[in-house]
């Protein structure tokens, strides 16, 4: 197990290096620069600024400097937010994004699995049709439209929740729902189909022949097997929650990491773009690793490569 994780960590570092390199060069290729504004700066000032941030050095030196900085976990100063470093931005924004993301993942998994199991147990009955109709809506409606709808109806019309901003738990509910709707619908459909497949298995009949009640059969025998595909989806889910949060944070005016990320790109705030990309990549890679480890725990037939072989 330790050997397996060590190997995976090594691959993660390689992936990270590839991501850093690709982002670094793509960013340089994109037209514009952090100091471009409507009023043209005098060339001397611009040259000074460039020198201050090290942008006058040749590209390979900037690249190696940056790599060294990343390794020492120093993403440098922000070009736009004066007197703030990228590290500051991350440590400020991440807790907010993390809370929002966790809330959304919780809603998506809990409700998605619940709906999926209900739909499967009541296959081709009204409960099934209702939940699946909701699921199709959830998958087809993009999160930003969902967000606007929620704001309009629940906040403006009914006044149940605040429209935007990030102040209390109340404020977190609408963005979390908007973010969770798509993944939840997907999980519901996934759970339903895999649950139906599992319920048709012989071992469910064996369990029934033992005299177990249908509740015990559903929870102990069916769900554990049916949830394997859902666990697999948790990796991509993290990714979609992360990317979804860029838009949602912008719509709800939440000072999270996604908000900074989107702003930094329009500003060509090189260091922020790089720093946040690296940070997001690490989160994603760790999430995928955790999913793989969880998979091995849930399904004993999956032996993690590099782990103990055989019996």
């Amino acid at each position: 197990m330790a050997k397996y994780i060590g190997k995976r960590l090594l691959y993660m570092i390689i992936s990270l290096w590839l991501i850093v390199t690709a982002t670094f060069f793509l960013m340089r290729v994109a037209p514009g620069n952090p100091f471009a504004s409507e009023k043209k700066l005098p060339p001397e000032i611009e040259a000074n600024l460039q020198a201050h941030y090290g942008l006058d050095k040749p590209w390979y030196q900037q690249y190696t400097d940056y790599l060294v900085n990343v390794v020492t976990w120093d993403f440098g100063p922000s070009f736009k937010y004066k007197s703030q470093t990228v590290n500051d931005l991350i440590s400020e924004g991440f807790p907010v994004s993390f809370l929002l993301g966790m809330e959304a993942i919780f809603i998506a998994v809990a409700l998605g699995v619940l709906f999926g199991v209900i739909a499967a147990l009541k296959q081709n009955k009204w409960q099934d049709y209702t939940t699946m109709a909701i699921a199709v809506l959830g998958i087809s409606v993009p999160s930003f439209i969902m967000a606007s709808f929620l704001q309009y109806f629940l906040a403006i019309k009914l006044g149940v929740f605040p429209v935007a901003r990030w102040e209390s738990f109340q404020h977190t509910i609408l963005p979390a729902i908007a973010l969770a709707a798509g993944p939840m619908a997907y999980i519901a459909r996934l759970t339903r189909s895999s649950m139906i497949e599992v319920l048709a298995n012989d071992y469910i009949k064996t369990a029934k022949a033992k005299g177990l009640s249908s509740g015990v059969i559903t929870v102990k025998h069916a769900m554990r097997n049916a949830l394997l595909p859902v666990v697999t989806y948790l990796g991509p889910l993290t990714a979609s929650i992360l990317t979804g949060s860029f838009v949602i944070e912008k719509i709800f005016g939440i000072p999270g990491l996604g908000f900074h990320f989107v702003t930094s790109i329009t500003n060509r705030d090189y260091t922020v773009i790089m720093g946040v990309t690296v940070f997001y990549s690490i989160i994603l890679l760790v999430a995928i690793l955790l999913v793989d480890i969880a998979y091995g725990i849930i399904d004993p037939r999956i032996k993690l490569a590099g782990g103990k072989k055989g019996e």
């Binding site: 071992y203 009949k205 064996t206 022949a209 097997n225 399904d299 037939r301």
Partner: peptide
């Protein structure tokens, strides 16, 4: 079921729960 009357099925490869 299971107490008074029990049953053995045809395919032992599929009639046991793989994750238990």
């Amino acid at each position: 079921r299971g107490k008074e009357i029990s049953m053995i099925f045809q395919d032992p490869m599929t009639s046991l729960n793989p994750t238990m």
